[in-house]
Amino acid sequence: METEGVETPVVAVEEPIIKPLDLPTAVQRLLKSAIYAGKLYRGLREAAKLMDRGEASLVILAEDCDEPSYVKLVEALCKQRQVPLLHIEEKKDLGEWSGLCQFDKEGNARNVVGCSCVGIKEVGTDAEAYQFISDHMRKAAQ
């Protein structure tokens, strides 16, 4: 049986919209990847030990850190060991992104603990986010 004159409807398939990366999103993705890989070190003590061993690939420091001596120590260690240092505005955001919180049923962060410094030993699986952050830091240095 032929179906002449009958048009078959064409269904348009929507392609997923890929948002361009911005710095907070890239940092979130990078930290999540490092958490899953077990290569994220939270807090000044752990990050300083990581840098002393020469194993840090990136250090993230919160700009609203309460203790100026912490900031000086982290910046000096990064400079001495030639580790890239990225500044984030708020330590509450850094604490949430590094997993120092609890999540409710809706997925909202609760009881967020601020974190002034984190060190990343290895990037993990999200190389795109690391590349974006590296390019951002390179442009900021120029």
Rank of each mutant, 00 (worst) to 15 (best):
E2N: 14
T3F: 14
E4L: 14
V6P: 11
V6G: 09
E7M: 09
P9A: 11
P9R: 13
V10N: 03
A12S: 05
A12K: 06
V13C: 02
V13N: 04
P16V: 14
I18L: 11
K19L: 15
K19M: 13
L21T: 06
D22L: 12
D22H: 12
D22F: 10
D22C: 10
T25K: 03
A26R: 03
A26G: 03
A26W: 06
V27W: 00
Q28A: 15
Q28C: 14
R29D: 06
R29Y: 05
L31R: 07
L31N: 07
K32L: 14
S33T: 10
S33Y: 05
I35D: 04
Y36Q: 12
Y36L: 12
A37W: 07
A37L: 11
G38Y: 05
K39W: 09
L40D: 02
Y41E: 01
G43F: 03
R45H: 08
E46F: 08
A47V: 00
A48M: 13
A48V: 15
L50T: 03
L50F: 03
R53P: 05
R53G: 13
G54M: 04
G54D: 04
E55Q: 11
A56M: 00
A56N: 01
A56T: 00
S57E: 11
I60C: 04
L61Q: 09
L61Y: 02
C65N: 13
D66Y: 02
E67L: 07
S69G: 00
Y70T: 15
Y70L: 13
K72P: 00
L73H: 06
L73A: 10
V74A: 02
E75M: 04
E75V: 01
A76F: 05
A76L: 08
A76N: 14
C78Y: 05
C78K: 06
C78A: 13
C78G: 15
K79C: 02
K79D: 08
K79A: 10
Q80P: 09
Q80E: 15
R81K: 15
Q82F: 06
P84V: 03
L85V: 04
L85H: 04
L86E: 00
H87N: 08
I88W: 02
E89M: 08
E89S: 11
E89H: 07
E90A: 10
E90P: 00
E90N: 09
K92A: 15
K92M: 15
D93G: 07
G95N: 02
W97Q: 10
S98H: 05
L100W: 12
Q102C: 08
Q102R: 14
F103Y: 15
F103T: 15
F103K: 15
D104V: 05
D104G: 04
K105R: 11
K105H: 11
E106H: 08
G107F: 04
N108H: 11
N108S: 10
A109E: 12
R110C: 06
R110P: 00
N111R: 11
V112P: 01
V113A: 08
G114V: 02
C115D: 02
C115N: 03
C117S: 04
C117T: 13
V118Q: 01
V118T: 01
G119A: 11
G119C: 09
K121I: 00
E122Q: 12
E122L: 09
D126Q: 08
A127H: 13
A127P: 00
A129C: 07
Y130S: 12
Y130G: 03
Y130T: 07
F132V: 02
S134T: 15
S134R: 14
H136E: 10
M137G: 09
R138S: 09
K139W: 10
Q142F: 12
